Amino acid sequence: MKFQLISLRDANQNFSRLIASVERGEAFCITRRGQEVARLTPLHPSAPMEKSPGMQDPLPTEIAMLHASLAERVRQLEARLDKISTALSPTDKR
């Protein structure tokens, strides 16, 4: 996979466009002061799907976005559970 270099500043200022490019199958190497700090790649590196008539985005993109959203929500819920568990006294945990 070939990575396009992009500065952290440019990635931050153009994040929506950057994500749209990734959804089309492009990959980016994000740099800070010339040093690679992150890579942004499609979840599924296969060739992007053709859009069906009347379909705004290919289905795999929608599934990938839903997966990312759900994964983030699970992380949030796990963090809340950890806080609650930590706050409970040992007798409350039974």
Rank of each mutant, 00 (worst) to 15 (best):
R39F: 00
S7G: 14
E62Q: 08
P58I: 03
P58Y: 07
V22N: 01
S89W: 09
D82V: 02
L8T: 07
S85V: 01
N12Y: 15
A79S: 10
A87V: 02
S46W: 11
S52K: 14
D92K: 14
F15Y: 10
D10V: 10
S7N: 06
V74M: 08
L18C: 12
C29F: 11
P58C: 04
R80S: 08
T61A: 05
I30T: 05
P53M: 03
I19N: 01
A11G: 12
E72V: 11
L18E: 12
A68G: 05
S69H: 12
M65A: 15
P45Y: 04
A64E: 15
P58G: 05
G25Y: 07
M65Y: 13
I30K: 08
P90M: 05
P60V: 06
Q35N: 12
M49H: 14
E72H: 09
E23G: 00
L8I: 00
A87H: 05
M55N: 03
V74L: 04
A20S: 01
C29E: 15
A11Y: 13
Q76Y: 01
G25L: 09
D57F: 12
E72A: 11
I63Y: 00
F3S: 01
L18S: 12
D10R: 15
F28H: 11
S85C: 07
L5P: 01
H67S: 03
P48W: 06
A11R: 04
T61K: 11
E72C: 02
D92F: 13
P48H: 04
A38S: 12
I6S: 09
A27T: 00
A20Y: 01
R73F: 02
Q4V: 03
L40F: 11
D10W: 07
L5V: 02
L66S: 09
A71N: 01
L70H: 07
L81R: 05
P42H: 06
Q13T: 14
L77I: 07
G34Q: 02
C29G: 06
A27W: 05
H44Y: 13
S21I: 04
L40A: 01
M65P: 10
T61V: 15
I84P: 09
L88M: 15
E62I: 04
Q13G: 14
E36N: 07
Q76W: 08
